[in-house]
């Protein structure tokens, strides 16, 4: 499936948000996800299905003042 991930087209094989994270192989600590401008709580990552219209943004915590 082709989705928009952080403003760029992204191809992956899977259905849910959790599948996308597994595919990205990134630490899940300190991250947050929004789909179509709505924050998706971690408890819903497994049950949230993606489709070709999904605009996914993943944010991570970094150093800052």
């Amino acid at each position: 499936m082709k989705i928009m991930l952080n403003d760029a087209p992204h191809e992956f094989s899977g259905e849910t948000l959790q599948d996308l994270l597994t595919h990205l192989d990134k630490s899940e600590q300190g991250i947050a996800i929004a789909i179509n401008q709505q924050v998706v709580p971690k408890s819903l990552w497994r049950s949230t299905e993606l489709n070709e219209q999904s605009q996914v943004f993943i944010f991570e915590s970094i150093a800052g003042g």
Partner: peptide
């Protein structure tokens, strides 16, 4: 301590300061 958020860098692994 304060921290910021940014769009995840999908290409590079970020230095983990959280732990």
């Amino acid at each position: 301590v304060t921290l910021s958020l940014r769009r995840m860098d999908l290409k590079n692994q970020t230095d983990n300061i959280l732990k």
